[in-house]
């Protein structure tokens, strides 16, 4: 049964991750629900970019929230940032998922990363061309593929991606540039939009 705080919880006024994490650690499930709503998108987008399969990604993101919840008593909000701590759990869960697969070659990754209902901009690009572009993206090394998908396809900022991956923002810019160059070499890229 979910715990509903009768008095106004302090994280509603402070509204920061640290207060939410501290409340969740003390057993406040509604605080954890807010954290979940806040980081569900990033956890799922990362998992999908890393694993390339919607079902596996959903499982991985859910499992990460479950693992984080179980580990909350060991989390110290004064010593670590919740987002960084949680995203480390997500990355480890995805790494386990990849390890469990017998085939790890990115070229053979399932290509279920496209939305079934593309937006109006995407309609302008031929579906077959979009498919080939996504195949080229799926064949990229993980270090380039994940930032590219998180930034362009999931709309995350470079800073958000840097925090999620635990690397400096300059590294993300370098990986994005490397990914664009590789795609340009393999795919071309002219006349897409």
């Amino acid at each position: 049964m979910h715990t509903i705080a009768v008095t106004r919880p302090h994280w509603q006024t402070e509204s920061d991750d640290r207060a939410l994490a501290a409340a969740a650690r003390d057993g406040d499930r509604s605080a954890y629900a807010v954290l979940m709503a806040r980081y569900r998108g990033m956890a799922f987008a990362y998992s999908l970019a890393a694993l390339g399969n919607r079902e596996e990604a959903e499982d991985a993101a859910q499992d990460a929230f479950v693992q984080a919840y179980a580990a909350m008593p060991r989390f110290d909000p004064d010593r670590a940032e919740w987002a960084a701590w949680f995203m480390r759990i997500v990355r480890n869960r995805c790494r386990d998922g990849l390890r469990r697969r017998s085939v790890r070659r990115p070229a053979e990754m399932p290509l279920e990363i496209m939305d079934e209902a593309p937006g109006p901009e995407a309609v302008a690009m031929a579906d077959s061309r979009r498919r080939v572009l996504m195949q080229a993206v799926a064949a990229l090394p993980e270090a380039q593929r994940v930032p590219l998908l998180l930034h362009y396809a999931a709309g995350k900022t470079r800073g958000e991606i840097a925090r999620a991956l635990g690397v400096p923002e300059s590294t993300i810019i370098g990986r994005l540039a490397g990914g664009l160059k590789t795609l340009r070499r393999r795919f071309g890229g002219e006349g897409l939009i």
């Binding site: 987008a45 970019a49 572009l133 996504m134 998908l149 362009y152 890229g189 897409l192």
Partner: peptide
């Protein structure tokens, strides 16, 4: 632009 026009579900 092409990458940005795709959306992750």
């Amino acid at each position: 632009g092409g990458l940005a026009s795709t959306r992750l579900p």
